[in-house]
Amino acid sequence: MVKKTHVSTTINGETAEFLCEPRQSLLEILRDTLELTGSKEGCNNGNCGACTVLMDGLPVNSCLVLAVEAEGATITTIEGIAEQAHLHPLQQCFLENAALQCGICTPGFIVAAKALLDRNPKPTEHDIRFELAGNLCRCTGYDKIVRAVQDAAAALEGKH
């Protein structure tokens, strides 16, 4: 067996260290080693976006990132989106808009949408559809997801 590598990261604001094999993906380590199972595996080849996390502020498919590549990185997963006592406006708007059915794609969508709103606080419908095209949902037809992100953008604007 190959020797494991020590990796030091910041995940959801806390220092996280782990040992991994060179072939292990960040998703595998998040889920199986660190027990952060909120990031989901839908395809394991970067096609579905269910495993989206923020890596140094940018959305990435964590199934396509090798865990060793996370050395020194700051990572936010779905578990780190809510603020201490209350949900993030995106989470609240997903609930109010019924923007989830089975819910398996929801963590990826919320993380990807957060990346979008961080960069572009007033996205058009076109912007939202374009930026979230890397996240697949098979249940909703996307209508309510797009509306949830629009509502969250409005709510966040009101907060600032």
Binding site: L95, L100, G103
Partner: peptide
């Protein structure tokens, strides 16, 4: 809902 937007819901995997 809350479990499903925070990643806490337990799916098969």
């Amino acid at each position: 809902g809350v479990d499903k937007v925070t990643g806490r819901a337990i799916y098969g995997a």
